[in-house]
Design a protein around this nucleic acid. Structure first.
Lengths: 205, 205
DNA sequence: ACCTGAACACCGTTCAAGT
DNA sequence: ACCTGAACACCGTTCAAGT
């Protein structure tokens, strides 16, 4: 027989890893952070419970991969959102709104992303984590606005951290439903309010 | 025999509920959000696995009680911290630093507090949740500063939400170790930086 | 190389039973 | 009233075995 003909039995020749990560993400979004079990992930990917151990050392490793996937998706959303505006402050606002939207639309995934600690092990070596790539995206947008003279010239990482903390904190509060239910436009209004407070300060001039 | 003499066997006459909550808090702090099991909580409180069901309908109910306990402790810390200063802005800063410190010193508990959704069921009826009491404390401090003319006179809840989102977001990032390890003074410096950005704005005047 | 199936030590929850 | 002990359907992980 040829080189790569696959029967149904060994269908997941090199795809199982990816299939497991996607199944994990789906399960997290369907059943929440606690609804994800190794056995359910395996079943969703069409294999028995022990097959995942060929590709991941344990359950946590699958979750870590799902977290990476989340940061990667979030980064894509932020980039797309910022590209809908040209004015530097508008780009920041778009990005921040997109961030909060992601959290609200994928509450389970979002919670898992920040629940698990940042894995200590540096992957492949010099490959930056999806998390680091996300940070870079946010810092870049701030630096643009600084070069254009709209944002104070303090260390861009500090500014980015301030902006990010605000929207991340707000998102967490919304996702945990501690601010009550909010529809899309109410969320955007609240995010806008917070970012405006941030831009112009809350103290009396 | 008298009215309330207790043998060792029925020692937890009306205390078991409280003992279980405290055991749950301890376990969360020792083993993290995933390390808490109903059986371990019961064992720590000195009873068998099924005894908790007399006092809580299920595991989640115990966790909810531990969350309430957390908000209650956090509120106490914030009040104590604010009382160490008299100048309104200094009171806000002290409160915010105390908030971040609580998160860093009780990382497991803090994560659980915001992981679980706000329980829909209103307890005893009109008794405010520990969460609501915490919000009130933060709003009060903002209102003080507004009356003294230090903070813009926008809705105090919105201002409080902005401040809170910032420090909560920063705390979450620190607890999940995504900003790297920070000692006490580095944490205070970062919190101060963020709150200053917030007070005076990040935009060019 | 990749996957299976039995086995082990756990887990939350129920239910009948003890005092 | 309050707690126990057996039982059930789960769970993550291991290990020998199949192809």
């Amino acid at each position: 027989m040829g080189n790569k003909s696959l029967t149904k039995a060994n269908y997941h020749h090199g795809d199982l890893r990816r299939a497991l990560v996607l199944a994990a993400v789906k399960l997290i979004e369907e059943k929440g952070p606690n609804g994800i079990t190794l056995r359910a992930v395996a079943a969703k990917a069409g294999v028995t419970k022990t097959a995942p151990y060929r590709h991941f050392s344990n359950k946590q490793a699958i979750i870590n991969a799902a977290v990476e996937e989340g940061f990667s998706e979030l980064k894509a959303q932020l980039t797309a959102a910022a590209d809908q505006a040209v004015e530097p402050l508008a780009r920041i606002k778009q990005q921040v709104i997109a961030y909060a939207k992601f959290a609200v639309q994928h509450p389970g995934h979002y919670q898992v992303m920040f629940l698990s600690e940042h894995p200590a092990e540096t992957l492949a070596g010099n490959t930056p984590s999806a998390f680091q790539t996300l940070v870079d995206t946010m810092v870049d947008t701030i630096e643009e606005a600084q070069r254009a003279g709209f944002i104070r010239s303090e260390p861009p990482l500090e500014i980015a951290l301030t902006v990010w903390s605000s929207v991340h904190g707000l998102s967490t509060l919304v996702v945990s439903k501690r601010l009550g239910q909010l529809d899309d436009s109410a969320l955007a209004a609240m995010v806008t309010k917070v970012i405006d407070n941030l831009l112009y300060g809350i103290s009396c001039s």
